[in-house]
Structures are given as C-alpha cells and as structure tokens.
Design a protein around this nucleic acid. Structure first.
Length: 787
DNA sequence: CAGTGAGCGAGCTTCCGCTTGACTT
C-alpha cells in the first residue's frame, strides 16, 4: 500500500529519489525538499554477511559473501523500482562508516549508474543543511566503505571463531564477541574486586555548636577534618573535648560556578533516565523511539552533543521568553568520546516551544527530561557562594570545619540538575552559615563519633555499564541496549535485587560532661537491579581472558579503531590490516581447540568430617553443582547450588548444607514425606504431590513432620474446593480467576449469573459448544488428547 | 514446574551495527 502510493508520486514527477536510513527522517526531509523529490528510506543496512557459516573467504583476500536478508527483500525490490524511474538518485545515508557502507551497498544492489547517483550527507535536518548538501554532492568514499567492511569482517571472524571454541571446551550455544565478552569481563572483574575488598572502619566526628552569647542565637554543625581509626582514639579525643575551648579560627568565602551538562547522547540519556526514573536502557530507547517517530525529538541513537544552529537559536529565544535575557548563554559542546562518529545531532526536542507533550506518563517524563537538559545546556552558569568556617580546639591540633553553600544566581539550576551515580548521601553541607568572626568562642552542644565503613566499588547497573563501555569506546549507540540484553539472555550475568545484611556500629556521644557509647544496627549492601556474574559467565570469562587476552583487552577496540581510521583515510590497506589481525588470531584459535583443557571451574573444597569424603564444586551439564565423594565413588552424591551462590566463593560448610536436602521427614498415611528445594523454591513432597512451602515461614532444613502434614492437609482442602463437579471428562473447577469448565485440554467460561454448583453435564456441553466457535483462528493446532 | 549431574554423536548454536515493525499476554 505504501509502495503504490510512492509509485503514484514518482510517476507524477520522475525526478529525484533520495534514500536515507530512517523512515521518520525521510518524512521530515521530504517536507523540506518539496515536490521534486521523493524521499524514502533503506531501514538501515540492506545487505549483510550470510547468516550461516563464516561468510568470509579467509583464503581469498577476506572476500565477503553478502546477502540481502529475507526481511529486506521486499524493500529492496521496491527501492529498485523507484530508482529505475528516477532521473537522479541521492544516497543520503548517515555521514559515518556504516552510513557510507549502506550507500555503497545500495549502489551495488540497485545497480545504480555513477552518472545519475550522488552521495550527500548532512548532520542536521534543516533546509539550509540539506540544500547545501545537494549543492555539494560527492561519490561514495570507498576508503570509508572498506573501513566498515574491515570492521564487519573482523567482528564476524572474532565472533564465529571464538564461539565454537566455547562450544567445544565449555558448553554448546555459548557466544563470544568483541563487545559482549568485554562487557561480561567488566562485570566479572568488578565482582572480584568486591570479593577481595577489605572493609576498613573509622570514626567520623561531628559537632553541634551554639552561641555563647544569648542575644545572638545560632547553631552550627561542623565536622572534624580527619577521622579516627579506632574507638579508643575517638574516645580519647572526646575526653579532651570535655575541657576544650572552641574558637573560630577564620571564615572563608569564595564564589563557585557550576556549569550545565552537555545535551543528551544515547548513553547519557540512558544514564539519566535510569537514575531519575529507574528506566532500563531498553525502556528508555523504546520510549525515545516513539517520541522520535512522532517528530517530537531528534534521532535517539547518537554519540554527538552537538546542537544545530537552528536549535541554538530556538533555545536562546525560549530561555529569553521564559526566564529572561540574563539566563541565556549559548554554548557548543565538544563531544567527549573519542570514538564518536557524530552522524547526528544531540538528542533534543525538535521544537523547543513544545514545553509539554501528549502521550503516556513515561513519554511525558522522558520528553520533559530531554527538554530540560537541552534548555539548561544553553543557560548561564549557576553562581554559588561557598563558606568555610574553621574551628580551633584549644587542647588539640585537630580542627572542625563547617561548610555552607548558597546560590547567589541560580542560572541553569532553575530547570535542571544532573543526578549522581553513587546513591550514598552527600556529605552534609548546610545552606546559609551564621556570620561569625575570627576569635569568636563557640559553645559545645554535642559531639558525636560514629563508626563508618569503607564501601566496596559499586556493582554495575545497566546504565553504568553502558557508560563504562562508552568510555572504553566499545559498542555504539545502536548496540548498547542489545548488548545488555545479549549478556543477560546468555546467562553470563543476572540483573538482580539482593537484600542487605545487618551490621553493628558504635556511636559515641559527648553531651555535657558524659560520653555515652551505643551499639546500633544498620542494614547495608542492599542492591537494586545490579549486575552479578553467573558461574557460567565467570567460567567463560576466565577461559577467554586466559586464552585470548588480546581480544579481551579493554584497549582492543580502541586499537583496532585506529586502524579503521587509517583505512578510512586511505593510509592503510584493509585486507592487509585484516590479514595481520587474522593470522595470529586464527593460530590461537586452532591452538586452543587442540591444547586447552575443557573448563568446568572445579574447586576441591575439602573433606567432609562426617563421611570422610571429598567435597567439590564445579560446572555440570545443567549448571553449577557440588559433589560429595570422588568421581569413582559409586555412592557419590550431587546437589545444585542455590540462587546467589557462586562456585568461586562457596565454602565447605555451605556445600555440606546443600546435601542435607532432600530430607526424609518420616511417614504420613503410610507414604514418605520429603522436604527439599527445587528451581521454584522449597517444597514438601508426599504421595507424588508437590506442595510449596510458605515464604519466610517454612525452611526445608528445619521443617518438622507436623508442619509438613499441616501443609499437606491445607493443600488438600484447597484442591477439594477446586473441584466443583465432574462429569466424565468434563470438569467444573475453581481457578485463580473464578470457576470455569475444563474439557479436552481447553478452558471455558461460566456466565457470571450462573451458580457453578448447579450446572449439569448438558449445561456444560452447551457452554462448551457456544464458546468453541469463538476460538481465535491463529491458535496453533492442539495436540490430540487422550480419551 | 519440583530432574538431572556419564558418554556417544548428529545437528544445531555464534558476531556487531544500521534500521523498524509484528507479534502476544
């Protein structure tokens, strides 16, 4: 239907065909270009290496075997038709490596003649930029295309040669790649840092001072500039404070400026949406895609912080209108990331005058965030006055310090404040401090020393992992979300919440002339949506870093990007580059296939004192297990690790505990009662029926036979209530959503006004017949049921 | 749903970057 519409259009004018990458972009450009141009889109790449097999002839100059993917065939046919009818074809894919390759593939696949084919690029969609582009066309840049081919082929070689090594040495269907394997490595290494982390404790001292003089009332909170290592030291200090005199040594005021953050790129948008709204990166991208398709924001996959001159002007106008002239400060930001290809603008509202939009709550939120960030980026610095008051202690060289900050000019802070990654509370800074003079004596109200603990490095969230990858130049805006999803679906990492643990700490308080010591409790280490490596993730990572250190090196991508740049500049031959990479790499692959050990991460944990048997943990066919007894022991026992346990950190006690299940609790009605834990949690097994234990109440290691019987009876009662009536193979059941009829493997509704208890077999049959016809046609064929 | 954990072997799996839908609950 789209095709016919386009064809009608082209038949009218037969002039210019412009091909861009995105259909939404095509629509806006068409409006700008007017009626002599038909603008259509390629929907990204139209050709790729064959899906099966290497797709690269490594013995013939890395000749790639390209195909048009099946889901692109129709589109390509359509583009062929359109291009045949146009007098001039303008290849307007993005101005980067991938865009150039798309143009080149289009030229080849559509068999475009050099004479009526022109390559144009622009990185902002304005009338000016586009007409400039049309006036300055060029040819497809083969050097840039070759840089892309080298990138594509190298990724294929790495992925399709490494993965099979894993299938052979570890487990089938695993995967490895230049990007995903490094992402997993980051998570694994962070977890090891956390395992090795030694918590240090110290005592932080803070004081509350009052005025000595009653006419002049104030209260001042100050912190000691250094901490104490031990409770004893803190106590000695507080003892001293009893008789100390506290005087203001000096006060220090200085102006401080804060500048707004740059406009959003894909990665910074994902980070902020995660911090401010707890959106996953995929969620953010989906919402942004909708906003983009509705023409509300610019393209959402970008690494550029650049704003078009048009947008700069619009921002200036909007800020002037809303906040006034003195809030305006036009800025152009330099893109931080070295790997940036800057094919697009930063992510911004298309029309800044739209301060609000229609849409879902999430769309509104994300749009508002983008609007504020864009506007703030063009606003004046915030001006603050920072005050520091140093306080002397008469009998000690330590000093207290109070800091305060007041905003003298809010500037961009009027609309937007960037969030912080670490969720730990900021050190206390108050607003306005009392006006004090040097030499002034302060009255000690209360001094406390609180035990604090150093924190292990934080586990990655989706967004912080993306940030790290971007810093390393690994992955692209279009792949951040898919990469995250890949390492999760491969089960290399899990995204989880973990409850915290309780910790005791000490607080000393000096009030009047008494020092009170309290033991307090706090919960620490609560994790929300953080990445944890799995056993298989750790195993694969260790195998790869051991055998393929070059590929797993954090600098690998950055290094090969330098080569790709040289290829793009015409200073390096792409085949020579691939050759010098592939020769040693492939040798390593062969070598490792032949010589490396199959990896199962086995750890011998020790000897079980009770049985005298060896306890070990390793990766088995269905996941991580512990084993009691050596391999040749005919009586050896196995048990799976529990969720959250890792082979690497499992202790022998934890392992032995796993063998306590299943527990035989005794007999009930002449049949065994077993307590155990399965994939879906702890359960009681009796008469080949499984009964789930109650969360937070029952524990499979300690549950008694009496309690188990209680659960069995409770389940029976429920099941009885479930069965309302039975007529041969027709059953009337009570389900989660209320009563229903079950027949022939399918379920049927019972009208609300009907009492299910009074239904007869004929009533049921009638209900079944009346609902049978309504079955959706798309439903897959049911398998035959037993009579 | 609540198991398994060995070994054999056929046939399968797999990469990164460009783009949107077309699906169902």
């Amino acid at each position: 239907m789209k095709t016919t519409k386009n064809l009608q259009k082209i038949l009218l004018m037969q002039e210019n065909l412009v091909i861009v990458e995105s259909p939404a972009k095509a629509k806006t450009i068409e409006k700008l270009l007017g009626k002599n141009y038909l603008v259509t889109s390629s929907y990204g790449h139209i050709r790729d290496l064959v899906k099966k097999g290497l797709g690269v002839d490594v013995n013939n100059n890395f000749k790639p075997e390209y195909i048009i993917p099946t889901d692109k065939k129709k589109l390509v046919d359509e583009l062929k038709k359109l291009s045949k009818q146009a007098k001039m074809i303008w290849l307007a894919s993005d101005e980067d490596r991938e865009g150039e390759a798309i143009a080149w593939h289009l030229q080849n696949v559509l068999k475009l003649d050099d004479k009526n084919t022109k390559r144009i690029t622009f990185n902002e969609i304005t009338k000016d930029a586009i007409s400039k582009a049309i006036q300055n066309p060029r040819k497809v840049d083969l050097n840039l295309v070759n840089a892309q081919q080298a990138r594509r082929i190298l990724d294929r070689l790495v992925g399709f040669e490494l993965s099979p090594v894993l299938w052979k040495k570890i487990k089938s269907a695993l995967s490895a790649g230049r990007v995903q394997s490094v992402a997993v490595r980051l998570v694994v290494e962070r977890e090891r840092e956390i395992m090795d982390f030694k918590t240090e404790t110290s005592y932080k001292v803070s004081a509350i001072f009052d005025s000595v003089n009653k006419d002049e009332k104030f209260r001042l909170k100050a912190n000691l500039t250094s901490d104490f290592k031990t409770e004893k030291e803190a106590n000695i200090f507080l003892e001293k404070c009893k008789s100390a005199i506290f005087t203001v040594e000096n006060t220090n005021k200085k102006p401080v400026k804060k500048s707004p953050a740059a406009p959003f790129t894909t990665s910074t948008l994902q980070q902020e949406a995660s911090r401010k709204f707890r959106f996953s990166v995929a969620q953010t991208m989906n919402i942004a895609q909708h906003l983009y398709e509705r023409g509300l924001i610019t393209y959402m996959r970008t690494d550029s912080t650049n704003l078009s001159t048009l947008a700069l002007g619009a921002a200036k106008q909007a800020i002037k209108n809303i906040f006034g002239e003195k809030y305006v400060k036009t800025r152009q930001y330099k893109t931080k990331s070295k790997s940036a290809q800057e094919a697009h603008e930063a992510i911004r509202p298309t029309y800044l005058q739209n301060t609000e939009i229609e849409g879902s709550a999430q769309e509104k939120k994300l749009y508002d965030l983008i609007w504020k960030r864009t506007v703030a980026s063009q606003m004046a610095d915030a001006e603050l006055e920072k005050t520091i008051i140093n306080i002397n202690i008469s009998n000690d060289s330590e000093k207290f310090q109070a800091t305060g900050e007041i905003i003298t000019f809010d500037g961009f802070l009027k609309v937007y404040m960037e969030s912080n990654d670490d969720d730990s509370e900021n050190p206390e800074t108050s607003g306005l401090l009392p006006a004090l003079t040097a030499g002034q004596i302060l009255a000690r109200k209360e001094i406390t020393a609180i035990q604090r603990f150093s924190q292990h490095p934080p586990r990655y969230t989706e967004a912080s992992l993306v940030k790290k990858l971007e810093e390393l130049g690994i992955g692209r805006p279009s792949t951040y979300a898919p990469t995250i999803s890949t390492i999760i679906t491969r089960e290399y990492v899990t995204k989880e919440d973990r409850p915290g643990t309780e910790r005791n700490y000490t607080k000393l308080t000096l009030k009047l002339n008494d020092i009170k010591s309290e033991n307090l409790k706090e919960t620490v280490g609560i994790e929300k949506s953080k990445f944890f490596p799995t056993d298989i993730g750790i195993l694969v990572n260790d195998f790869l870093t051991e055998n393929f250190p070059t590929i797993l090196n954090y600098q690998f991508t950055a290094k090969i990007e330098e080569y790709f740049d040289k290829i793009a500049d015409g200073k390096l031959d792409w085949i020579a580059m691939l050759d010098s990479f592939y020769k040693p790499f492939h040798k390593k692959v062969d070598d490792s296939l032949e010589n490396s050990q199959t990896a199962n991460a086995e750890r011998i944990l020790g000897i079980d004192a009770k049985s005298g048997k060896q306890v070990s943990a390793r990766m088995a066919r269905f996941g991580p297990i512990v084993q009691l007894g050596e391999n040749d022991d005919p009586e050896k026992k196995f048990s799976s690790l529990k969720k959250g346990q890792l082979i690497e950190t499992l202790t022998i006690d934890e392992a032995l505990k796993l063998f306590e299940l299943p527990r035989n609790l005794g007999e009930y009605e002449g049949k065994e009662v077993i307590a155990s834990a399965g994939r879906f949690g702890p359960y009681v097994l009796h008469d080949s029926k499984f009964i789930s234990m109650k969360k937070n109440i029952d524990d499979p290691y300690s549950i008694t036979i009496e309690r188990a019987i209680e659960l069995i009876e409770e389940k029976r009662k429920k099941d009885n209530e479930k069965n309302i009536a039975k007529f041969g193979d027709i059953e009337v059941l009570n389900g989660f959503y209320g009563p229903y009829i079950a027949y022939d493997g399918k379920n049927y509704k019972i009208p609300k006004n009907q009492d299910p208890k009074t239904l007869t077999r004929d009533d049921c049959m009638a209900l079944i017949e009346s609902q049978k016809n309504k079955e959706p046609k798309t439903k897959t064929k049911k398998t035959a049921t037993k009579k």
